[in-house]
Simulated assay, not measured.
Amino acid sequence: MTSIITASPNLGVSLPDHTQLPESDGTFVKNFQEHPQSILLTDSIAPVLQQLHPDGQYCIGQDCGIYWRLTDPPERGAEAPDWFYVPNVPPTLDGQVRRSYVLWQEYIAPSIVLEFVSGDGSEERDPTRITGKFWIYEQVIRPPFYGIYEVRQARVEVYQLLAGKYYLVTANERGRFPIPPLGVELGIWQGRYQNLELPWLRWWDANGNLLLAGSERAELERQEKELAQQQAEEERQRAEQERQRADRLAAQLRALGIDPEA
Rank of each mutant, 00 (worst) to 15 (best):
R142E: 10
P144G: 03
P144D: 02
F145R: 07
F145Y: 14
Y146N: 02
G147V: 14
I148R: 10
I148C: 12
Y149C: 12
E150W: 06
V151Q: 13
V151I: 15
R152A: 13
R152Q: 11
R152L: 10
R152T: 10
Q153S: 13
A154H: 06
A154C: 10
R155Y: 04
R155C: 09
V156Y: 02
V156L: 08
E157L: 14
L161Q: 01
L161T: 00
L162V: 06
A163W: 08
A163C: 07
A163P: 04
Y166P: 14
Y166W: 10
Y167N: 04
L168S: 14
L168P: 11
T170C: 02
T170G: 01
A171G: 10
N172Q: 01
N172A: 00
N172D: 00
N172K: 00
E173D: 15
G175I: 11
G175S: 12
G175Y: 07
G175P: 14
F177H: 10
P178Q: 05
P178D: 04
P178W: 01
I179N: 02
P180Q: 01
P180Y: 01
P180T: 01
P180N: 01
P180K: 01
L182F: 08
V184H: 00
V184W: 00
E185F: 00
E185Y: 00
L186R: 01
G187R: 02
I188C: 06
I188L: 06
G191P: 04
R192K: 13
R192D: 13
R192M: 13
Y193E: 12
Q194C: 10
Q194G: 08
Q194S: 13
N195A: 10
N195C: 05
E197D: 15
L198Q: 14
L198G: 06
L198N: 12
L198S: 09
L198H: 08
P199E: 09
P199A: 11
P199L: 13
W200P: 15
L201H: 02
R202A: 09
W203T: 04
W204P: 03
W204N: 04
W204G: 01
D205H: 05
A206E: 02
A206S: 03
G208I: 00
N209R: 07
N209M: 08
N209D: 07
N209W: 05
N209Y: 07
L211G: 03
L212Y: 07
L212Q: 08
L212M: 14
G214R: 14
G214K: 15
S215I: 15
S215E: 15
S215A: 15
E216F: 10
E216Q: 11
R217I: 07
R217A: 05
E219V: 05
L220G: 03
L220S: 05
E221N: 11
E221Q: 14
E221K: 15
R222L: 10
Q223Y: 06
E224P: 08
E224I: 09
K225R: 13
K225F: 09
E226G: 10
E226L: 14
L227S: 15
A228P: 13
A228Q: 15
Q229T: 08
Q230N: 13
Q230V: 10
